[in-house]
Design a protein around this nucleic acid. Structure first.
Lengths: 221, 221
DNA sequence: TTTCTTCTCACTGTTTTCAGTGAGTTCCTT
DNA sequence: AAGGAACTCACTGAAAACAGTGAGAAGAAA
């Protein structure tokens, strides 16, 4: 028999906590050790030396200190608490934010039931866990298929660039010189210069730095 | 009984292909349909209308058109071929590059054996698949935990920059030339050049683009 | 067939950046 | 008072980027 995994749950809706407890109780390896209804309660609970949990299930939106602030508290105090975010918002920026705050898992409430047990076990073993919809979102964002809300990439200009121009643009952002690019692409330096100048003109910037910044803004790199 | 999954393998080392075939043959659901030793062969094979495969296992480094170019070919021809990259390079940039080129899976050769069958099945079903080491690398990069090998942690570098150097760095990202900066800051061009060179040295990059990219990565701009 | 785009390359010149070295000033700290 | 860091400037030479113009080849589209 394996060691038990102890879990603390935090969400401002008690009915949801009860649901989670019900799901978790179906698994003999996992045991609930208390719950909290606000971020403040979470912090207080863990501040008490007598309390501890292998994994903390944490909601983002809570009154009196939200999930972010709880994570920030752990980070500030250098407490290496394993946390799984249970969120209703499938927003890339939120996911990235909590990841950078050291959380180890993220599951959306939509399909929490099917994921929560596996997530707890994975995180307890030191792995990371993301529900399938979050995973696919993360991968899309990585492969540049995602459009961050608010700032639309300049589709117009972007589409006006040819394949070769894009190749050169990418290499420029990697600090390649014209000679190096020509070498790598098996082209004449004159040709690479042509693409470089064409990029400057099309994107209406005045130097290579402008090209690089454009590439960054438009998620080409 | 499920439908068979047909797979084509491409790698310039025949011994590796044989190994993969051996592993795959242990699973009755999957069947090999040909192999290629160069990127050109892959393209030719798929260009032949009589040939097809549910999944293509593709090496990156190959003579006569590498994996990148094969992916580009599919993209250009708007062929929605499911591809799993089998690479010896666990480099974030490469992973991102092939992801943006539409590949659906990425496993490193280190632990290909344990992953390849699952990868094929997952991708065949339309999912994405990444071996655990690649996954953790991707997640680290997302949460900003990635520390580029060899380099000093960026906090130190960033702190080592003086006020004036930061001023110049910011202006560089705005496409200012040395003369323009000198004018704006009421300094000699020589002075601005000094800061510029100091930045290049401290941040260990080779040109202004490198400086700009550093500034972006470290949210200076 | 003609037109258009893309890709390729060349030539000439100017401007800017990069590299190395040296040095005087102020201000802060020990 | 001495040392160090930051700020300032100068000079030289090489390398790279930028600017403008022109043009042939291949392929797709009208």
């Amino acid at each position: 028999m394996k060691e038990k995994i102890y879990v603390h749950v935090a969400d401002d809706h008690k009915i949801l906590i009860e649901g989670i407890i019900a799901v978790i109780n179906t698994d003999k390896e996992i045991e609930i050790k208390g719950y909290s209804l606000t971020g403040q309660e979470v912090i207080d609970w863990f501040d008490n030396k007598e309390n501890s949990a292998d994994v903390l299930i944490l909601d983002i939106t809570m009154p009196v200190l939200d999930g972010f602030q709880v994570l920030k508290h752990f980070k500030k105090k250098k407490i290496d608490q394993k946390v799984i975010i249970l969120s209703s918002y499938d927003d890339l920026k939120i996911v990235q934010e909590v990841l950078s705050l050291g959380c180890k898992g993220y599951i959306s409430k939509n399909n929490a039931g099917e994921h929560i047990v596996n997530a707890i076990k994975a995180v307890a073993q030191g792995e990371q866990y993301f529900s399938t919809d979050i995973q696919s979102m993360l991968l899309k964002s990585l492969s540049g298929q995602m459009v961050p809300q608010g700032e639309m990439p300049d589709k117009f200009l972007l589409d006006s660039l040819t394949e070769r121009e894009l190749d050169v643009l990418k290499l420029i952002t990697k600090e390649y010189s014209t000679i190096e690019m020509a070498d790598l692409m098996n082209l004449s330096t004159n040709t690479v210069e042509t693409y470089r100048k064409s990029l400057l003109k099309k994107l209406n910037v005045k130097n290579a730095v402008g090209l690089a910044m454009y590439a960054v803004k438009n998620k080409i790199v």
